[in-house]
Simulated scan of single mutants.
Amino acid sequence: MADRFEGTATGLDSPGRKIAQVTSGVDLAAGPCRALLVGTAGTATVVDIEGNTSTNIPLQQGYNPIRVTKVTFGTAADIWAIY
């Protein structure tokens, strides 16, 4: 199917173009994401795009608009990176 929006510039406020399942404790293979989609709410340790590590970050079920390069699951689970 043709992408009607292929020629449209995408920004951080645009819908994601790709999703990838996050593996706990492993750098995101596609680099920094634009957001996280969380299936089970809870906490996680994240590394942001500047390399700062933050622990026990609460993640809500659903869309979390944070740009990270790595997620280590605490009580949160079923996490997907949106690009």
Rank of each mutant, 00 (worst) to 15 (best):
Glu50Trp: 02
Ile66Gln: 11
Ile57Cys: 12
Ile57Gly: 07
Ile79Ser: 15
Gln61Tyr: 00
Val46Ile: 15
Val71Tyr: 01
Ile66Leu: 14
Thr69Ile: 01
Phe73Gly: 15
Thr45His: 06
Trp80Glu: 13
Arg67His: 04
Pro65Ile: 01
Thr75Ala: 13
Asn56Ala: 14
Val71Asn: 08
Gly51Asp: 07
Pro65Val: 00
Pro58Tyr: 02
Arg67Trp: 01
Thr45Glu: 14
Gln60Lys: 12
Thr72His: 02
Ala76Val: 10
Lys70Gln: 12
Gly74Asn: 03
Thr53Arg: 06
Val71Gln: 03
Leu59Trp: 08
Val71Phe: 00
Leu59Pro: 11
Ser54Asn: 06
Pro58Met: 01
Pro65Asn: 06
Asn52Leu: 12
Lys70Phe: 02
Val68Asn: 13
Gly62Cys: 04
Asn52Ser: 12
Ile66His: 06
Pro58Asp: 00
Gln60Glu: 13
Ile79Lys: 11
Ala44Pro: 13
Lys70Pro: 07
Ala81Met: 07
Val47Cys: 09
Ala76His: 13
Ile79Asp: 12
Pro58Arg: 06
Thr69Lys: 05
Ala76Thr: 14
Val68Glu: 14
Thr45Gly: 08
Ser54Gly: 04
Gly62Asn: 03
Ile66Lys: 09
Asn52Pro: 03
Ile57Glu: 08
Glu50Cys: 04
Trp80Ser: 15
Tyr63Phe: 13
Ala77Val: 06
Val46Ser: 02
Ala77Leu: 06
Asp48Ile: 01
Val68Ala: 13
Gly51Tyr: 02
Gly51Ala: 08
Ile57Asp: 04
Ser54Cys: 03
Tyr63His: 09
Trp80Thr: 11
Ala76Gly: 14
Thr72Asn: 08
Arg67Glu: 11
Glu50Asp: 13
Ile49Phe: 01
Thr75Gly: 03
Val46Met: 09
Gln60Pro: 03
Tyr63Ala: 10
Gln61Met: 07
Ala81Lys: 05
Lys70Thr: 10
Ile79Phe: 06
Ile57Thr: 10
Pro65Glu: 01
Asn56Lys: 05
Arg67Thr: 08
Thr72Ile: 03
Pro65Lys: 09
Arg67Gln: 15
Val46Trp: 02
Asn64Trp: 01
Gln61Ala: 15
Glu50Ile: 03
Leu59Arg: 11
Gln61Phe: 00
Ile82Cys: 13
Gly51Asn: 06
Ala77His: 05
Thr75Pro: 00
Ala76Pro: 14
Thr55Ile: 04
Ile57Ala: 11
Ile82Tyr: 02
Val68Gln: 14
Thr45Arg: 09
Ile49His: 07
Thr45Asn: 07
Thr75His: 05
Asp78Met: 08
Glu50Ser: 11
Ala44Arg: 11
Ile79Trp: 04
Ala44Glu: 05
Pro65Gln: 07
Leu59Gln: 12
Asn56Gly: 10
Ile79Met: 10
Ile79Cys: 12
Pro58Asn: 07
Gly62Glu: 02
Asn64Val: 00
Lys70Trp: 02
Asp48Val: 04
Asn52Met: 10
Lys70Val: 02
Thr69Ser: 12
Asn64Arg: 00
Gly62Ile: 04
Val46Asp: 03
Phe73Leu: 15
Thr75Gln: 05
